[in-house]
Amino acid sequence: MIQFISHYNERYTYLDSIRLALDGGCKWIQLRMKKKSPEEIMPIALEAQQMCREAGATFIIDDHVALVKEIHADGVHLGKNDMPIQDARELLGPDYIIGGTANTFEDLLAHYKAGANYIGCGPYRFTTTKENLSPILGVEGYKNIIEQMKRHSISIPIVAIGGITIEDIPDIMQTGISGIALSGTILRADDPIKTMQEIIDITQKYKK
């Protein structure tokens, strides 16, 4: 299960990046445009949402709860400095997916109790995409969190995030993590569409 997080570089715009991910077969897109206002994000979000609908992909937006509700996106992803999950749930009601970023089992437990539907857990390793970095987790960090979830009888899908490359994916999936969130790995690839296809193949072949 792959979530693509939009980004831009000298080659691609936000929408280009989403188009590449969808063309590579990705069915879960997060539009993240840090430091942009809802007014700036709205037109891009509407276009991205249309692209996702046509491709049958789930479309969520980072941070902007009101915008998600206004354009009827599928859900919102909330980072550590965004709106608390219970507040977002109150605003959105039961019909939207809410994801939360967690760095530790304690974060995860809090998000789970607050009504999150999935967890973005990381960072796996150091990455320049995200500022305000938390301590890196690595494979051992994920094993540890999965172990504690079992101990507390908690089940919630977890997506690993943060500087993950193709080579890392088998080891991460081995821990019991449900999916992988990617951004830079796709955009920096020589052929982003082919790279996305390869990554989806790898996760699909993987069985617990």
Binding site: K27, S178, Y206, K207
Partner: peptide, 9 residues
């Protein structure tokens, strides 16, 4: 508000 993956797809 539902997404389903089967064998990670």
């Amino acid at each position: 508000g539902v997404a389903i993956a089967i064998n990670n797809q």
